[in-house]
Amino acid sequence: MAKKRSGGTRKPWWVLGLLIILLSMGSSAAVYYLLDETSGDTGEQQSEGEQQQEVVAPQPSYIKIEPFTVNLQSDEYDQRLLYVGLSLQVTDEATKRRLKDNMPQVRSRLIMLMSSQNAEALTSPKGKEALTDEVISLFERPIGGSEEPLSVDDVLYTEFIVQ
């Protein structure tokens, strides 16, 4: 009789453990399914929103300025040089055309601006950011006799050596 009682008491615990395992597996599967479904929906909504933004936002184009070298102002050394190549990011085709048509004036403005820079300032990231802002503001003035504003959005340095 003792064997029946010990065997009998083990069976309900075994069944209870099996039920707990099955319930936890089922709830895990349900949570996974629900989370996967919601993340799939938001992914579709985001991609649709991104597509709408891509349609609205104009595609930027770039004007490459051939590299040039200028003398820099320096406090510590006798002579410092800057070798710089850059591209201007524009979104307006009219701006792109005017910049290309007036490239000698564009290069002249850039050379004058770059040669007035301090060599020590240009070696730091903040100095490069300040230079970028100055280059963008350089194109706020009309160019080539036109009164239409130029829309230069960014300056991208392709080569930048201070020596």
Rank of each mutant, 00 (worst) to 15 (best):
N102S: 12
R80N: 12
A121W: 00
L72W: 02
V162T: 10
V152W: 03
M114R: 03
F160C: 05
R107S: 09
L138D: 02
E134T: 10
M112T: 12
G7V: 00
S28T: 01
G17I: 12
V55Q: 11
Y32V: 00
P142F: 06
D133K: 14
Q53N: 08
E37I: 02
D36G: 14
V106W: 03
L150S: 04
G40D: 13
P149A: 14
M103A: 11
P142E: 11
G145Y: 08
L22G: 07
G17Q: 13
L22I: 13
P67F: 10
V135Q: 02
K128H: 01
Q163H: 04
E148Y: 04
K96Q: 15
S47D: 07
V135C: 06
R5I: 08
L131E: 02
L72I: 05
V84P: 01
D75E: 13
G49Q: 07
G144S: 12
I136G: 05
G127V: 08
T95Q: 05
T91M: 04
G144V: 00
T69L: 07
E48N: 07
L19F: 05
D78N: 12
V162G: 09
E129A: 11
G17A: 15
L35A: 11
L150V: 00
V155W: 00
I161T: 10
S24W: 11
E44W: 06
D92E: 15
M112N: 13
T123K: 09
S47H: 03
V15Y: 03
L122I: 09
I136N: 06
Q117M: 12
I161E: 05
N118H: 08
P58W: 03
K64C: 02
L19Q: 07
Q45C: 00
E54L: 12
I65P: 01
V106M: 06
P67N: 06
Q53M: 07
R5S: 06
R5W: 04
L23R: 06
G49A: 15
Q163K: 04
E140Q: 15
T158D: 12
A130F: 00
S27W: 15
Q117C: 08
T38I: 08
T95K: 02
Y77A: 15
W14D: 14
M114E: 02
I136V: 13
G40T: 10
Y62W: 07
S108K: 12
A57T: 12
M114Q: 05
T38V: 09
S47N: 06
V152M: 10
D92S: 15
